[in-house]
Each structure stands twice: as C-alpha cells, then as structure tokens.
Amino acid sequence: MAEARPPSSVQRSKAQALLALVLTFGKFGGITFGGGYAIIALLEEELVRRRGWLSEEELLNIITVGESTPGAIAVNTATFVGYRLAGVPGGILATAALVFPAWLVIVLLSGCYLVLRENVWVASALAGIRVAAVVLIVRAFFRMAKGIKRTRLNGFCLALAFALVAFAGMNAVWAVVGSLLFGVAWYGLRPRFADAKRSGQPPADS
C-alpha cells in the first residue's frame, strides 16, 4: 500500500477497475457472436482507443498469448487483460463476466431446444442449420489452411493429422500432444544440434 494515498481511495480505485472490467467484459460476452476474433476488434476499440487502458503493442502481445495458450482465445484474452489491470482478482472477474452472458443464454435456450426440436418447422430449420454449420466448419478449415506457411512438411503434418483422426479414429488430444513434441524436436532442437555440430550437410528442408 502506498502511504501517500489514503487507503479508501486506493480501495475505491481498485474496486472501480474491477467494476469497469466486469462491465466491459460482460458487454463483450453479451454482444460478440462466434467469439475469438470477433472480440479482438472490440477490445481494440474499447480498451485501447476509448479507455486507454492498454497500448496497441500490449494488446498485440495479449492476443499472441491468447492464441498460443490452450483454451478459447476470448477467455484467455479476458484473463490476461484483467490480470494486467487488476491482478489475479481482475483476471478471474473479467473471465467470469465474459462467460456469464453466454452461459445464461444457453441455459435458457437449451430448455426450449429439446422441446422445440420435435416441432416440424423447427426440425426443418434445424436440418438447414446443420448443413450451414458443417459448411462453416469446412470454411474455417480452408481459411486456416491458407494461414499456414506453405512447406512440404506442413502439408504432410496436416494430411497426417487429418488421416489419422478422420480415418484411423485417433484421439485428437494425442495429435495435439504429438505435434507439440514434434515442434520442439524439429523446429527447436534440430537447428540447435545442427548449429552445435557445424559439420555435416544442411538438412534438405523444403
């Protein structure tokens, strides 16, 4: 605690930061559709431009962390921003606020869903929704595939993961674990060993 400031004002400013976090992330949770990247544009607008809580660079760092740590990107980002602004309670509260509207809507909706599913009109709408949802997944596959560096090795890894899971029924968790280990070995250890050796021809990397 800083002695320069009276404790009440310190507490109030911390409480204010927590309240602002809850309101901001609660709003994000309530108005973004599809999560993930939709939330990033909102974060930029609200936290960087309007409130000035973060700089552009900090936000970029946070997004990088959100993308590269396990879990939903929006959730990771909320935890990180909350932590940056108000410590561990901030991280937990921002996450809870983000999750709450989505949770509430689905809890309310899923009660009706199982009943409505039997209705013939709802059933025909759902048949159309199923087709559109599969199309969305396929589109996500193509979009994400475009974002990958075009090397023969990446193509091989993609095809291998696809075949093992789609045709051989391998557990997706093992594919993820395997790819993490392979990444460390191939992109991390291999160049380091090659550097240490200096001798021997460079490996044929495409």
């Binding site: 949802a133 994400m144 890894c157 790819s179 460390v184």
Partner: peptide
C-alpha cells in the same frame, strides 16, 4: 523461449488438419 515457439510451430498444421477431420466426419 525457443521451445515454446517451436512447439507452437509444430501444432499449427496439425490443428488445421484436425478441423478438417471434424468437418469431413460431420459432412
């Protein structure tokens, strides 16, 4: 850290392959 970056580089194509597999199965 190099290990974290290397590990992530390894997961990228595999994650896309997994989404493809889910899309294929559901399709």
């Amino acid at each position: 850290h190099w290990a974290a970056r290397a590990a992530l580089q390894g997961t990228k194509p595999v994650v896309v392959g997994l989404i493809g597999a889910a899309g294929y199965t559901l399709l």
